[in-house]
């Protein structure tokens, strides 16, 4: 059997005395799309933040392509290099132009020349459909455009896995679809993705696996058809009915 791309085994995390992740077991195969949903405070963001070590887990094992994530700075650096992340608040660098945002990682972390870094950067800007904005500052773009730049910035590092932490939650409604369209395309091209989102339309379209979390636990884990048609637990049923109401 092929090795999973991401593997979490009995992962536990506490913020002080607050038990935020309880025995999380999750495996993501290469090319698989996993959507994590759940009420706010359920720990879903913390799960993805543990996968790329923005947060440290205290118990259990996280492996990426078989390499265990430990405190060793070299291990953290090598894993962070392979895992891209798209944030709710975009987190673009406001003092740099769009193109500078894209080439910074490849040039400084990977040691590419400006030329080597700019060619793929322009290619990815085209893929997220904003090649003409390359020289603008992030603040001159709309929220949707900024998030697409953030996606392009992650892609420039050529990650094996892309994590999304509520990528559309900070966007005005009319801009959500332009970001989701880009994400659907990435999924169709076979990118391994873990997406924390409440966009259930997107989940139905691209997810290979649905994960429902509540109070720090994975309550349900199933294929999307089964997940939406026939949730197994009362908590999940209640959550779905609340967010699918409108």
């Amino acid at each position: 059997m092929a090795q999973p791309s991401i593997e979490l085994v009995d992962v536990n995390k506490w913020f002080g005395t607050f038990h935020v992740l309880k025995d999380i077991n999750l495996s993501v195969d290469a090319g698989e799309r996993v959507v994590i949903c759940g009420p706010s405070g359920s720990g879903k963001s913390t799960v993805v933040r543990c996968i790329n070590r923005l947060e440290e887990h205290q118990k259990g094992v996280i492996r990426l392509d078989g390499r265990e994530l430990t405190n060793d700075p070299a291990s953290v650096a090598s894993i962070q290099g392979d895992v891209g992340m798209v944030f709710q608040q975009f987190n673009l660098f406001p003092h740099l132009s769009v193109l500078e945002n894209l080439v910074l990682g490849p040039m400084k972390a990977r040691g590419l020349s400006r030329e080597e870094a700019e060619t793929p950067a322009r290619h990815y800007l085209e893929r997220v459909r904003i090649p003409e904005q390359a020289n603008k500052k992030p603040s001159e773009l709309s929220g949707g455009q900024q998030q697409r730049v953030a996606i392009a910035r992650s892609l420039c590092m050529e990650p094996k896995v892309l994590l999304f932490d509520e990528p559309t939650s900070a966007l005005d409604p009319e801009m959500i679809s332009e970001v989701l369209d880009v994400m659907v395309e990435l999924a169709e091209e076979g990118m391994t993705m873990v997406v924390v989102t409440h966009e259930m339309g997107f989940a139905r379209k691209v997810a290979d696996k649905m994960v429902f979390m509540d109070e720090g636990e994975i309550v349900e884990q199933s294929a999307p058809e089964a997940f939406f048609a026939n949730p197994q637990t009362e908590r999940c049923r209640k959550f779905l009915s609340q967010i699918l109401q409108h």
Binding site: N52, Q80, F87, L92, S154
Partner: peptide, 15 residues
């Protein structure tokens, strides 16, 4: 400077 700036820098491999 917002914490997200440091996190974003980390995720594109900057030390």
């Amino acid at each position: 400077i917002a914490k997200g700036q440091k996190e974003a820098a980390q995720t594109i491999g900057l030390n």
